[in-house]
């Protein structure tokens, strides 16, 4: 159990470094994916709502502290979305196929980015609608696409897809 937690923490740090270091390469017309969101959602799907809650909070607070935004906003958004989506999925006896995973991740990312933009645009001249069209929706879809590609990759497929497809009766 402890080893699993330490391993997950190390993976989280690697994803955070990748988010910082790889973003310039992954950015398309100013739109970047949220790799930590993918990481949190994978953990949620694998281990349930509480794992999503803790991972979401940790990942979010790390992003908050390194970014120039308001500390706590991303932590609140990520932990809340991961927890309630985990609860929602937990009650269903379904298996998530890659397409389902893409939709789930894109939707989670959309809600997350929308929530964050409410804080981000405080005092800004950019309208919420304009920001939604130009940033929130493209960024959410991009995160969904990267997450989708990840589980189709040989090293990404083994665990996540296995987890996604076999996750039916997990106790959350």
């Amino acid at each position: 159990m402890l080893i699993e937690i330490v391993k997950t923490f190390i993976y989280g740090v690697i994803v955070l470094i990748a988010q910082i270091g790889l973003s310039p390469l992954l950015e398309i017309s100013g739109v970047k994916p949220d790799l930590l969101m993918i990481f949190v959602m994978l953990l949620m799907v694998r281990n349930g709502a509480y794992a999503g809650l803790i991972a979401g909070f940790m990942a979010g607070i790390a992003q908050d502290l390194i970014s120039i935004g308001i500390t706590g906003v991303l932590a609140l958004a990520k932990s809340t979305i991961a927890f309630w989506l985990g609860r929602l999925l937990g009650g269903q006896d379904t298996s998530l196929k890659p397409t389902g995973w893409f939709l789930l991740l894109s939707l989670a990312s959309l809600v997350h980015n929308f929530f964050v933009s409410l804080f981000l645009l405080q005092g800004s001249d950019i309208g919420l609608f304009e920001y939604l069209i130009k940033n929130v929706i493209p960024s959410s879809l991009y995160t969904g696409i990267i997450g989708y590609i990840w589980i189709l990759l040989p090293f990404g497929r083994k665990k996540p897809e296995e987890r996604l497809l076999s996750r039916t009766r997990r106790d959350i």
């Binding site: 910082i20 310039p24 739109v31 908050d64 970014s67 935004g69 995160t143």
Partner: peptide
Amino acid sequence: IGMNPDPGI
């Protein structure tokens, strides 16, 4: 060294 980890900022 890197970009902000928050996609919105």
